[in-house]
Write a protein that binds this DNA or RNA. Structure first.
Length: 452
DNA sequence: TGAAATGTTGGGGCG
DNA sequence: ACGCCCCAACATTTC
């Protein structure tokens, strides 16, 4: 009689409902992580994300060991691994926390069906969201498509359960099943490009809480203003921790306290909820525009322009700085994400899917729900999206949000000696003219509207 | 979580 | 003192 605890994107011991339920059950627990890119459909984790996962799994194993347990690692399709392990460990129950990506939902549903078919007590829980996507519907019983009413609804209804404490001991089975070694999962890249990432991040639950505590104490008060300044440490830096479930939104809600609950930061957390809401109800939007008329948008695909954008060689300072920051560190400041995305989709007329794919492969916080919502938002093709004619001017944006040019200077060494006055002006033969390409984008939009 | 074009207002220089 | 013009500053409209 054991309980199998299947870790997914909930790599934490605090406020973990599946773990809590497993402990309540009172039987020995076998904690398990299954590395299974095959179960992720078209979106297996990219290199930056795998780097994070490697370290987060090690951290999880260590904190399990502090409680008399350990993490079993396996590789293969989750359904098969679970079924095999149930037999080997004589497990009578399998618990896990839900995921909401299309492929992950299918994987979970399949596992549940298979296990229950064999008389196993299979049960899933919510660790990742303040509100279950299927429980939040508008007056006419449909999913929300606009953020503001969704936000109002959530703020009105919200009373998250008290957070669960981490168990001090986790009962071990008499014998442990075989585990793959962390190294054998081959999550780390062969070329060691991640030294900057190692400096910037501490994957794992402890790192998540350090970051959260530091943010609440030092950064939250100025969040609304400071988060817009890429040269300032004004954001929470919690996105990868949230993605891997090293900390959850319920915990942040409680940590914020009554005053923080009217904060811009909570609204950002609820944008994340909204992204999951949309992905759940419109799973096809990872690759297809939510607004169908955008199926006919006249993109001007160019491998050359795409590559220049990816490498940060566009000749537009804010764009190049952002893309190089991404490549070096696995993150990009959020304000700059909007700028580079607008530039790719509008000034270069490249399909937003290309940008989404690149972000997916390079971001350490790559998250299918957030990535999909944000790219569709920029492209104008999504729910509550920016109107297509909102074209960011990277020069103006730079002057507004990086007024001293410090951010550009940090990532574009060619401009190290440029004055604050001139630093945001296109340099070294920009690949497009901002004014003309803006006009071309508006024309393309008008063309689409005519066809639709 | 835009930018640019266009419109309006009001202070100040000037004949 | 007055009308005229210029132009910054702000507001509104348009894409």
């Amino acid at each position: 009689m054991t309980t199998l605890l299947w870790f997914r994107q909930d790599l934490r011991l605090r406020d973990n409902p599946a773990l809590h339920a497993a402990v309540q059950r009172g039987e020995p627990i076998v904690p398990l992580y299954v590395w299974s890119p095959e179960d992720e459909g078209a979106w297996p984790p990219g290199a930056a994300s795998r780097w994070w996962l490697h370290h987060s799994l090690r951290a999880l194993d260590e904190s399990l060991r502090e409680r008399g347990s350990r993490l079993i690692l396996a590789r293969g399709r989750a359904k098969a691994v679970l079924a095999g392990l149930v037999e080997r460990t004589h497990a009578t129950a399998v618990f896990w926390n839900r995921r909401y990506e299309p492929a992950a939902r299918e994987c979970g549903a399949l596992a549940k069906q298979t296990l229950r078919g064999r008389g196993i007590h299979a049960e899933s829980f919510n660790s990742a969201l303040l509100a279950e996507p299927h429980e939040v519907l508008n007056q006419s019983g449909k999913p929300y498509r606009v953020y503001t009413p969704y936000l109002r609804r959530l703020l009105h209804d919200l009373e998250p359960a008290k957070t669960l404490v981490a168990p001090s001991q986790i009962a071990a089975p008499k014998s442990w099943p075989d585990s793959a070694s962390l190294e054998s999962l081959d999550l780390l890249p062969r070329i060691k490009w991640y030294t900057l990432m190692e400096k910037a991040w501490s994957p794992g639950e402890a790192g998540a809480h350090r970051r959260s505590n530091g943010f609440m104490k030092n950064t939250l008060a100025d969040y609304r203003q400071a988060r817009e300044r890429p040269a300032v440490r004004g954001t929470s830096g919690l996105s990868p921790h949230l993605h891997f479930g090293e900390i959850g939104p319920r915990q942040l809600w409680h940590a914020l306290g009554p005053k923080g609950r009217s904060s811009t930061f909570l609204q950002e957390i609820i944008w994340r909820e909204f992204a999951y809401h949309l992905l759940y109800h419109f799973p096809e939007t990872t690759t297809r525009p939510l607004r169908p008329q955008f199926e006919h948008f006249p993109w001007k695909k160019s491998a050359k322009h795409l590559r220049a954008w990816q490498r940060g060689e566009t000749g537009v300072p804010m764009v190049d700085a952002g893309m190089r920051e991404l490549w070096a560190t696995g993150v990009m400041h959020n304000r700059v994400r909007m700028i580079v995305a607008s530039f790719l989709v509008k000034n270069l007329l490249q399909p937003w899917q290309q940008g989404a794919r690149w972000f997916w492969d390079t971001l350490v916080d790559a998250d299918l729900a957030n990535n999909t919502l944000n790219w569709q938002w920029v492209a104008g093709s999504g729910a509550d999206a920016a109107p297509y004619f909102r074209v960011f001017n990277p020069v103006t944006q730079g002057e507004k949000f990086d007024p001293d040019g410090d951010y550009v200077r940090q990532w574009v060494p060619e401009l190290a000696d440029a004055s604050a006055r001139a630093i945001h002006e296109p340099y070294a033969g920009p690949i497009v003219d901002l004014k003309h390409s803006r006009e071309a984008a508006l024309e393309a939009y008008a063309q689409m509207r005519q066809r639709g």
